[in-house]
């Protein structure tokens, strides 16, 4: 049967491709590993707390990179993130922020349960679609 063979082929391709997934369309993970630098944007007044810093230190160890910090205001940092000038931004972000569609907000380090939509939660923001990088950092944040 034609349909089932297409499905089997697609599933086979999915499993083959599964090794090393997800990857980044704009290559953030590769760049971090190659340059050994994580470019972190810190929004003024919302510096990383102990748990966020610990997660960041684990990511740095995992990737063999050092954290390079840059401080600035919210929009400035998020625009730099979108433009690919930063790899991560730490700040307080709410799910209903207009930026929620432009960048990806991760989980709050050490938090159990979901925050309210309008609650400003201290967490990392990522460039949209950099799924490999998001997975690397978020898995450490959840540890």
């Amino acid at each position: 049967m034609r349909c089932s063979s297409i499905i089997v082929a697609a599933l086979g391709a999915a499993l083959l491709a599964g090794c090393g997934m997800p990857r980044d369309p704009d290559g953030t993970s590769e760049r971090v590993r190659a340059s050994r630098v994580i470019r972190l944007g810190e929004i003024v007044g919302a510096e990383p707390d102990a748990q966020a810093s610990a997660a960041l230190a684990r990511v740095a160890r995992l990737t063999g990179a050092q954290v390079e910090r840059r401080q600035g205001h919210g929009e400035e940092m998020l625009e730099a993130l979108q433009a690919g000038e930063l790899d991560l931004v730490y700040g307080r972000f709410a799910d209903d922020s207009p930026w929620a569609a432009e960048v990806y907000f991760g989980e709050q380090p050490g938090r159990i349960g979901n925050p309210g939509k309008s609650e400003r939660v201290p967490r990392f923001a990522f460039r949209n679609g950099e799924n490999g990088w998001i997975a690397t950092v978020e898995n450490e944040v959840a540890r």
Partner: peptide, 18 residues
Amino acid sequence: EHPTVPPIEIFGQRVWLG
């Protein structure tokens, strides 16, 4: 649009939502 598909936690395991 660069679609974001993050990891999630399910039954205590971290899994890529994809």
